[in-house]
Amino acid sequence: MNYQYRDFYYYMKKLLLKHMAGVLCLLLLCIFAAGCTQSQTPAVATAGDTVEVDYTGTYDDGEVFDSSYERGQPLEFVVGAGQMIPGFDAAVVGMAVGDKKTVKLSPEEAYGEWNEDLVMTVNRTIFAENTTPVIGETYSSLTDQGFIRFTVIAVNTSEVTVDTNHAMAGKTLNFDIELVSINPADA
């Protein structure tokens, strides 16, 4: 092989390798960039989504009042549909599957303040003939507004004093929440 051709051959080989290295770097950069843009942020719960959560609810003294873990089944509800107390509903917004959080809900965010106007004295005849109202017991009754639950707080021969406040009215509630699944509203 002639020196002139050999130099030209080496020059071309060097030039080709140089350009191939540049092309290879560009190709790797494109693959990396595509991989970065392809990764998605995890879906988070928003209004209208159907979600499942596991939770434990406690009072401030640590007493457990409810737990989906104990029932062995997550709670399912539609976020923002008014199916849950307001603070619990709001706590789930923005959570991703697997997220856990602890929230402390004031009475206003839960079942409201205890309201003395919801304590009333009624005629004992609202109870069935062979039913004796017992102080501390909870009963249900059908009214013009639908079913109401009430707790008997006093009884005499002709009247019964009942409290129609929710049993957790006026209480601060604590929840440990874990988001189990999200079924988006637009799916």
Rank of each mutant, 00 (worst) to 15 (best):
V155W: 05
Q73W: 05
L118K: 09
Y55W: 04
V92Q: 13
V93P: 05
T56D: 00
A96M: 03
G112K: 07
A34L: 11
A167L: 14
V78W: 08
A34G: 05
V44Y: 05
R124M: 09
T41Q: 15
A110S: 14
G48I: 02
A43L: 14
T41C: 07
V64N: 03
A33K: 08
R149E: 12
K171D: 13
L142F: 00
S67V: 02
F127L: 05
T131Q: 10
V51H: 11
F147D: 11
P107D: 12
Q40G: 01
G80F: 08
K171R: 14
P133I: 07
T151M: 13
G57R: 14
G82F: 04
A47F: 05
V79N: 15
R71H: 12
T121A: 06
T102Q: 15
A169V: 10
T132G: 01
I148P: 06
F127C: 10
V78Q: 13
T157D: 12
T125N: 15
A34H: 03
S39F: 15
Y69C: 00
M84V: 01
D54M: 03
E137P: 03
P42R: 14
A110V: 04
I135W: 08
F150V: 02
V122W: 12
T121C: 00
V162Y: 04
E129N: 03
V122H: 05
T46H: 10
G94W: 13
P86Q: 09
E52R: 14
V78C: 10
V103E: 04
N115L: 09
V103Y: 00
M120N: 04
D144G: 14
V97I: 07
D54E: 07
V160R: 10
T151F: 07
N123G: 12
V103C: 07
G82E: 02
T41I: 13
K104P: 00
G170H: 10
K171G: 09
D163M: 04
W114T: 12
D117T: 10
G98A: 10
A34M: 05
A81S: 11
P74N: 06
G98D: 11
G94Y: 04
V160G: 02
G62N: 11
G57A: 14
V92D: 08
V103I: 08
V97H: 00
P74L: 02
Y111A: 12
E76C: 02
G80L: 03
V92M: 10
V97L: 06
E70W: 01
V79H: 13
T143W: 05
K101H: 11
D61I: 00
V162D: 08
Q83Y: 09
P133N: 10
R71D: 12
F77E: 06
Q73R: 07
M84Y: 00
G146M: 08
D54Q: 07
Y59L: 14
T157V: 10
C36H: 13
L105C: 05
G112C: 11
D89E: 03
G80I: 06
T56F: 04
I85S: 00
Q40S: 08
E52P: 07
Y59D: 02
P74Q: 06
I148A: 09
R71M: 05
E129D: 02
Q145I: 01
A154H: 13
S158P: 01
T143M: 03
S158E: 15
E52L: 06
Y69W: 09
F127A: 09
D163T: 06
A81T: 00
V53F: 03
S141H: 15
E159I: 04
A90R: 14
G136Q: 12
T143Y: 07
V162I: 15
Y69M: 04
E137F: 06
